[in-house]
Each structure stands twice: as structure tokens, then as C-alpha cells.
Write a protein that binds this DNA or RNA. Structure first.
Lengths: 262, 262
DNA sequence: TCGCATCTATTGTATGATGAATGAAATTGC
DNA sequence: GCAATTTCATTCATCATACAATAGATGCGA
């Protein structure tokens, strides 16, 4: 009697013969976003007018417009009345957005994400650690320890390890009790995941990282700001070392800043 | 026969006798946002269901929904099916958003914006200055100098001075050629305006600030990273000094970090 | 041919209606 | 009496359509 309860057809890519108003905006957004990231619509070009896009994708203008709005919010396109919707310069793209990272696929490497994320971490994390040492609540410190335990227990599961690692650094920024840092955390979240994933590929180096993470939690517990800061620096030195090959292999990468510990 | 061509009435604020579908979404969004920020809809409460809001404001449900979506994007509210739209905790609010700052009005002070903005600047700006010293293009340095000149020529016009000041710091972050810093710049832009406005209220202290800004441009021109960093530190010491009264007058403010120069 | 007003195509904003999803309350089965 | 199920009100997503505003194209007169 539950023939009706089994109607959870979530066939995202399928065409299906049941034209019952499926949820398509995500797909349309992804399709256009993908076409932009793959330079099928090159930077500076104007994409087809909205009505043509409606025909091409077989949806109403509402959906097209919502999709374009979503892309505009990510800095991919910029619409002007009567002119059309133009693809923005890559400089304008919000490359920290998880969707864009997904749409870029392997081409992420062209963006020098690893470099600027590492620079940002070097700038912010030690300070955040120091702040956290005096401001974090016991609950927040406990949460950090739990995240550390999940890293420890991840075993060979690189995905799980990275997930816990990202969560750890997210919690650390939140524990700094600075609203801007906190917001920064959610902004760079997706990029952090990518960066940490690259760091963590070398399984044999994870024990070392694990130790430093634990030491950091210990420093917070002792309310020792200087020690927390130092831990953070060592952690980043480690990350820089592990990332060096991945970054060197494509030249660029800002000078010496990535490996020095001031 | 051209009675139709003279219909360019763009009276934004007026009521007008020809109510032919005015543009109202901005106003509705502001009205609800204002009601939330003034705690007429307290944190945690559920605001009226969409149809009631339609009646109350006399617009279609589409407008209400777009407005709620805009508020949700700012972290003010969070809607769930069947439940309704709930006002989020203040912690969730994106207090860096220009609109929210405007809606908060004088109550901005409750948010400790000055403190966390200053902390962030202390963390990021010196590093950005150092990066800029080696990476900025000559054009970018020239732009910075132009911003400085606009500060110098602002005279008694505090608004113009602050505008140029904000622009200067925005350009500095962009000149660091780090995409995360660059993005940070646009995110904290509105809050910077507020913070610098507070700093710049004391007209007699502006000459000092002006000098340091010029020195920073000079350091960039000489590609002297250490000097640029030092300038930035002194600039922030100055800002901290000028903000001290505004911040002290309402307790709080994170410990010692705001006035020390590491 | 040049400069100005007018026209027109395209994007932007608003409306009402309807299917789809959701979760809490009412109802039924045991 | 309690738990599982159904119902139902409400939000979410889409659609078709109409109106508004704007910038480029057109055309007219001097």
C-alpha cells in the first residue's frame, strides 16, 4: 500500500517522462557555471539572451534569472540592462566558493589557491590561536579536542581525516571570539578543505600533524597564548613543507613567504 | 501625441497618483530588516506567515519571499518549511553587511565592531603591506598615492577624508595580490568605513595619519617590505589611540591586543 | 552630415497561480 | 493508552504574463 511512498525519484540528470515540474535550478546554475569555468563562454563574452537560454535549457525565464543571479553573486557574471550578461574577469571570481571550486575541477591548480590560502593561514591562524588561548570557553576547547580525536581515529580514511582537520581549524577561528575571523572561517572553508586534502595526501606525515594539533589544544587549556601561537606556527611550517611539491610543480607561488616562520 | 513619452516619473520616494507597480522590494526588505534590528521581532521569534506579511505591507507574496531571501542571505533570518521564518541569533548575523549596519543605526555600538575590526586590521594589514611592497604594480602604487592625495585635499570634509581613507586601505589589500585578502577587503569595507569614521572624528589628529600614509606609499615605492610593515603598525597604533575613548566608553573590547604592537 | 528626439529590443521587477516538499497535528490501529 | 499513519497548512520552487526602465538603433530635420 506504500506504492506512493516510494516516489522519491531524485534523478538529477535524467530527462524522465513525467513533466511534473522537477527542481532544476541547481542543475541549470551548474550547467552555465560549468560552461563558464571551462571557458566555453570565455571571459568578457556576452552569453545568449535570457529567452534563448530559456529555449536552450527548456525552463522558464524565472529559473534562468535565478541562476544568473546566483552566478552573479559568485562574481562569475555581471548583467547590465539591455546589454546582456557578461562573463567577468577571473580576478572578479569568488574562487573561494565551493561551487566554483567544484566547477573548476582539475583546473583549480591554475588559481594558485594553495599559495594564497597558506599565506592567509600564516597571517591569521597564529593570532587566532593566541586569542583563543584567552577567550575560548571550556566547551569550545572540548570541541577542539573532539575534532582532534576524530582526526586520530580516522585511520587510513583520508577523507575523514581531512574533514576533521577542516573542522578543527574552523573551531579554532570561532574560538578566537572575533567576528571577522569567524566569518573568514566560513568563507575559506571550501578552499581549506582542498588545501588540507593536498597536505594530508602523505599518510606517513599525519602522525606529526596529529601531535601538534594535540599540543595546541593543550596550550589552549593552559591558557598559554604564546605556546598556542608557537604551535600554530609549527603546524603551518609542516603544512608548507607538505605542500611544497604540489606548489612547486607549477612554478609561481609567492616568493619566500610560504616557508618562513617569523 | 507625445503625451506618452513624457512619462519619465522616477520619483523614488514619492507616493504619486499613478501607482503603476512601484519598485518596493528594497523598501520591504529594509522595513523588515529594520524591525528585526530594532528587536521589534526579537531574536528567536517567528515572524508572521508570508500571507500575513503580504497583507501588512500590501505587496505580493513574491516580493515578501524575495525580501526574506535577502534577509536570510545576511544571516538575519532562517526559514524552514511549515515552521515559518525565524530570527537568527545575533551571532549568526553578518554584521559586516552595509545594510545591517545601516539598519542598526546607533545600536551598532552594541556589536563591538570597532574591537574586532581593529584586531583584524592589526593581524592582516601589516602583512598585506609587506606583500604589497614586493608585488604591487606601479599602477597600484600610483592609485594608492592618488587616494592619499584625496585624503590630503579633503580639508574639513570628514566624509570625503574617510571615503579616501577607506579606499586607501582597500587598495592596499588589493595590492597584496592575495585573493583572500582582496576578498576580505570587500567584506569588511562597510565596517571599515564606520571604524575609520570614528577614528577620523578628531580633525586635529589627521595630519599625523596623513604623514604615515604617505610614508607607507614611499616604502612601497622603494620596495621596502620591512618599512611598509612598520608603517602599517604605526598607522594602527594611531588608530587604536584615536579609537580608545570610543571603545572604552562601553567597557568590553578585547584585553590588551588592541594597543600593542608586536 | 551632424545632432537630437523617437523607437525598439532586452533586461529588470512584480503578480498570481500551482505543483512539490515538509513537518506538525489529527486520526487511526493495536 | 500509545505509536504509526494520514492529513493538512505552510513554505519552497516553478511558471506564464505583464509592466517598467534603459541603452542602443533608427530616423528626421537643419
Amino acid at each position: 500500500m506504500d506504492a506512493k511512498s516510494t516516489q522519491r525519484k531524485s534523478e538529477t540528470g535524467g530527462d524522465a517522462a513525467q513533466p511534473r515540474r522537477p527542481r532544476v535550478q541547481k542543475d541549470i546554475t551548474a550547467a552555465i557555471g560549468l560552461d563558464i569555468c571551462s571557458e566555453r563562454y570565455p571571459v568578457g563574452s556576452v552569453l545568449p539572451k535570457e529567452n534563448d537560454l530559456c529555449d536552450r535549457y527548456g525552463v522558464s525565464r524565472t529559473v534562468i534569472r535565478e541562476s544568473l543571479k546566483a552566478l552573479a553573486a559568485r562574481g562569475l557574471v555581471h548583467g547590465r540592462p539591455r546589454i546582456g550578461t557578461m562573463v567577468c574577469e577571473k580576478e572578479e571570481w569568488n574562487i573561494l566558493d565551493p561551487q566554483i571550486l567544484a566547477w573548476m575541477g582539475p583546473r583549480i591548480e591554475e588559481l594558485d589557491l594553495l599559495g594564497c590560502i597558506l599565506e592567509t593561514r600564516r597571517t591569521v591562524e597564529p593570532v587566532a590561536a593566541e586569542f583563543a588561548a584567552e577567550r575560548a570557553t571550556v566547551q569550545e576547547i572540548a570541541d577542539l579536542e573532539n575534532a582532534w580525536k576524530r582526526m586520530r581515529d580516522a585511520g587510513a580514511d583520508t577523507e575523514a581525516f581531512t574533514r576533521a582537520d577542516v573542522h578543527f581549524h574552523e573551531l579554532l577561528l570561532k574560538a578566537s571570539h572575533n567576528r571577522v575571523f569567524r566569518q573568514l572561517s566560513s568563507i575559506i572553508d571550501a578552499a581549506m578543505k582542498y588545501a588540507l586534502h593536498c597536505s594530508n595526501k602523505a599518510v606517513d606525515k599525519r602522525d606529526e600533524a596529529l601531535d601538534i594539533h594535540r599540543e595546541l589544544v593543550e596550550a589552549l587549556r593552559l591558557r598559554d597564548g604564546a605556546a598556542a601561537r608557537a604551535c600554530s606556527h609549527r603546524m603551518l611550517d609542516l603544512a608548507a613543507r607538505d605542500l611544497a611539491p604540489a606548489m612547486r610543480q607549477r612554478g609561481q607561488a609567492g616568493r619566500t613567504h610560504l616557508t618562513k616562520s617569523p
